[in-house]
Design a protein around this nucleic acid. Sequence first.
DNA 1: GATGAATGAGCGTTCATTCAT
DNA 2: AATGAATGAACGCTCATTCAT
Lengths: 198, 198, 198, 198
Amino acid sequence: MGTTASVDLRRVILDTTRHLLVKEGYANLSMRKIARATGYSATSIYLYFRDKDDLFHALIEEGYEALNATFKAIHHATADVLDRFRQLCRAYLDFGLQNPEYYEIMFLLHPEHMARYPADKFRKARQNLDVLAQTLTEGVQAGLFKVDNPRVWASTIWASLHGTVSLMIAHRLDIRIDKDEFVETSLRHVVQGVQAPA
Amino acid sequence: MGTTASVDLRRVILDTTRHLLVKEGYANLSMRKIARATGYSATSIYLYFRDKDDLFHALIEEGYEALNATFKAIHHATADVLDRFRQLCRAYLDFGLQNPEYYEIMFLLHPEHMARYPADKFRKARQNLDVLAQTLTEGVQAGLFKVDNPRVWASTIWASLHGTVSLMIAHRLDIRIDKDEFVETSLRHVVQGVQAPA
Amino acid sequence: MGTTASVDLRRVILDTTRHLLVKEGYANLSMRKIARATGYSATSIYLYFRDKDDLFHALIEEGYEALNATFKAIHHATADVLDRFRQLCRAYLDFGLQNPEYYEIMFLLHPEHMARYPADKFRKARQNLDVLAQTLTEGVQAGLFKVDNPRVWASTIWASLHGTVSLMIAHRLDIRIDKDEFVETSLRHVVQGVQAPA
Amino acid sequence: MGTTASVDLRRVILDTTRHLLVKEGYANLSMRKIARATGYSATSIYLYFRDKDDLFHALIEEGYEALNATFKAIHHATADVLDRFRQLCRAYLDFGLQNPEYYEIMFLLHPEHMARYPADKFRKARQNLDVLAQTLTEGVQAGLFKVDNPRVWASTIWASLHGTVSLMIAHRLDIRIDKDEFVETSLRHVVQGVQAPA
DNA sequence: GATGAATGAGCGTTCATTCAT
DNA sequence: AATGAATGAACGCTCATTCAT
């Protein structure tokens, strides 16, 4: 009774922005374009977000939270270290490839924009690296990985995965390359690169 | 003979743009700023470049040529396959880290921009991958690398290196990570990832 | 009886606006800011005032009434003509300097704004001049003032006082000038200017 | 031969702005409105003025220079002190009444805008007061004026004249008052107010 | 070969105001 | 009596680009 059938405009704006991001890129995305795409006036956006930064930061946070949740779930669910490591890597790739819009603002936005991202929220973004680092540490103890400084290696792993995702969502890959094969190869390369010789 | 000693304004514009790119970033670069920095009028740029795209495409091409030259030099100079592979990887990292302005427009520009990049020039960009692929192939024949499809693996290697470069020039790396150690680790990871178990 | 104890929102809005006026100035005052400061919604203002003009006109009227009351009180309380004249002048200066927010909207708003001010309310504004004019007339009869057309001279007195107030509340006075001395001098100048030579 | 028949747009913008100022007031004057009134695009204004401030400051400076020139001319041309004083006062009134647009930005603009007016140019604005003060000083020495602190009295005179001008150009004067008579009366009042009793 | 003059489109943002509830 | 949702118009300003010379 008395259902509020009205749309949640805040949600609509976030989703619209997300979709436009992947089509147009942050640099070409304006408040007006977003408004036009939602069907609402530009002014309305400001009812839900203080300014452009606020809107994008909200989106970034959503992205971090989603990736974080996935990582944490894997961390708790998978005891086998090598398996867990592989799953984390695959989850990162999947997240990026399935949510290119989130990926774009989370990891491809220009540093100057990130500079305005609240510092405390940034910490959340780093937690993903911590999960990777811990898994590496466990792997070293189990004699599976040959890794000297897990913290640095976690960043290296991240860099490698990031390269794979970003080339793909930027359509930089030669069209003659099979995408699935590329992803699988990259995953294998990442894992092989940390493993201790048998 | 008979040529005037006047400056090559086209050259001046390209160099100025390159310098501004590294100082201000692509997003903050306007034709007017470039003009002001050259000391010539904004209109003059249009004598040498059809539009902004044309100017940047010329710069991108220069970048591809520079990287290409480096790769070819290494290819011809280094007979040892493993050494050559390592040198190619390091050269890629060095190129990106020492020429962030070129790297930005070559590999980090939004696809929407690259869509307008002349298809025939794109071939040059791919030659670098060919050099990598051939080295991988030779390495497989020499029993050094465990790689099934060299063409795909070349892209994977590229992706990994690209991730390393782009995280660094976007200042995404945790400040507590030593930069040199990170680069060395990434290089080791890339090489280890293709090597056959001893 | 039967009236609720609820606040008189109209009153609250008027007072809030007055306070904001002195803090932020007319130019920086928006309906939204007023609403926020009252704690009520912006829409609520429109329950009590037709529009922004209406709100400010109400405030202007209050100002005129306050000044009027002061003038009338002096008029009835002070029999000595010269003393009364001096008191009226001082009261005008005091009113302006102590209520710069009222003064601004009463006497400094651009004519374009005042054009929309209801003509009938303007009459109240003129009563102050009548008090001045009558005092001048009495002064002439008593041989104290040398003034031909009291109505015109009343306006002249007003102009002089207005200049003093408006320069001060607009902070136009050279900072090296002592403010109290300036006000006293202006008052003396105004009075001296109407007096008949001894 | 080769006459440049083209308009001086900078001049056109300044004049248009001047005229609009008196019609609409500073608060309601936008770059767009100015542009529309000139018949040129809004962008064109920025070819001649860095920003809105720059445009208005240029206008303010013109005003100060004009008033200054008039004052200096009178100062040098008129030996008789009382006559000179009267001429200065009348010149101020005339300037304001004949150039209400200049007067508006010079003396009626809100202090916050003036705060951005270059300090060194502000000095020029004060020279007018110096001329007044010196004339007062000379008058005191000649036994004509009864004035203790000429610097303060100069400001007082200015305030009085300013009140007269600003009430008139703001159309605050009762329409039943004859304007010429009002101006003459104000002038007489100002002069009488400084004179020593005969 | 090079320029000065000019512009339309667009930017992020704020405003007073309306309307349905 | 009071509100939340929404908007059209306007703001100052920057941009890539054109055109006549």
